[in-house]
Simulated assay, not measured.
Amino acid sequence: MAGYQSLEKLRSEVESARSILQADTQSPLPIGIGYLGWQLEKPNTPAQQLLSVALDNKVQAVWLSFGAQLQRWINFIRESEEHPGATKIFIQVTSLEEALVAINTWKADVIVAQGIEAGGHGSSTSPPLLTLVSEILANLSEEGPPILGAGGLVNGGHIAALLSLGASDSQRLALTSAGTGSSVRTMAFDHARNTLGWPRGIDGRGLRNSTVVDFENGVDIADLRRKYADGVKVDDPDRIVIWAGAGVGLMNKIQPAKVRPPRTVFTIEFMYGMSTFQEIVEEIHGECVTHIQSVASMLQ
């Protein structure tokens, strides 16, 4: 995710991806890069250069989210492509209205629907994920783009989403120890990390800890940031940010991830900032099949 990092850092990571995948500079690079719209829109941000890193390297997908000028970046991507349509555009949405604009006006290749349960940043007015996806599908023609659900899932899905963020040991322990109702929507961590600038209505869902409590009690921002920085140094779960969805109380175990072929692994890892999770996905698939078969048997 090309969010808070510099242009030089992004270029370095893309070069690392190309090296690991052993892809020559003339071939398409089988990864995707995500961009926070509001970061591209900040004054003095080299937005076009950041996007050009993706286009010059012929990445297969660009993910755009949380911005007031996403149409501008979509136009730039499509006008700059050497081969039209070579770069698939993913648009993350938090409402039916946003989805309809992305589908009908922006002609996005893939829609990513994020419900209010999702951990991390999202809209405080989003409907639940299942409601949002259902609304979008109800208004989608047969020729419409694929719809992906993001965040807020439970059981195997929650484990995959949270472990795949690359959490530290203390974060994983905190996640698996958290009870129902442990996560809260807040801007405390953005104030503590000084990552302010998100569009209106966007906040983050994470585990409630001392950073959140201090923020709610009006602790001086300088003190809040100092305590947060001290917590980061020692990986203190009572201070650091631990993004968590509404169903975090259903998590109770940590599972390993199987090794997959390098091309597949790095595509997932670089595009979404995730680690591999084949074993977890296999479990989710098995659970899904079991439930579908149960429903089918009731109809016989």
Rank of each mutant, 00 (worst) to 15 (best):
K58N: 01
V59H: 07
S65K: 02
L70A: 03
R72S: 10
W73E: 02
N75T: 04
N75Q: 14
F76I: 02
I77T: 14
E81Y: 00
E82P: 00
H83G: 08
H83I: 13
G85R: 07
G85Y: 02
G85P: 04
T87D: 11
K88C: 08
V93M: 08
T94E: 12
S95I: 14
L96P: 08
E97V: 15
A99Q: 06
L100A: 11
L100M: 13
V101E: 15
V101G: 09
A102H: 10
A102T: 15
N104H: 03
W106Y: 08
I111F: 00
G115W: 12
G120C: 05
G122V: 14
G122T: 12
S123W: 06
S126G: 13
L130P: 09
V133L: 13
S134G: 15
I136D: 01
A138W: 12
A138G: 13
A138P: 06
S141T: 10
E143I: 07
P145Q: 03
P145Y: 00
I147V: 03
G149R: 13
G149F: 06
G149V: 05
G149S: 07
G151L: 02
L153H: 14
N155C: 13
I159S: 06
A160E: 01
A160Y: 15
A160G: 15
A161R: 01
S164I: 02
D169P: 07
S170Y: 15
R172G: 15
L173E: 13
L175R: 11
T176E: 10
S177I: 15
S177M: 12
A178N: 11
A178Y: 10
G179C: 03
G179R: 07
S182M: 15
A188W: 03
F189H: 04
A192M: 05
R193A: 09
G197N: 11
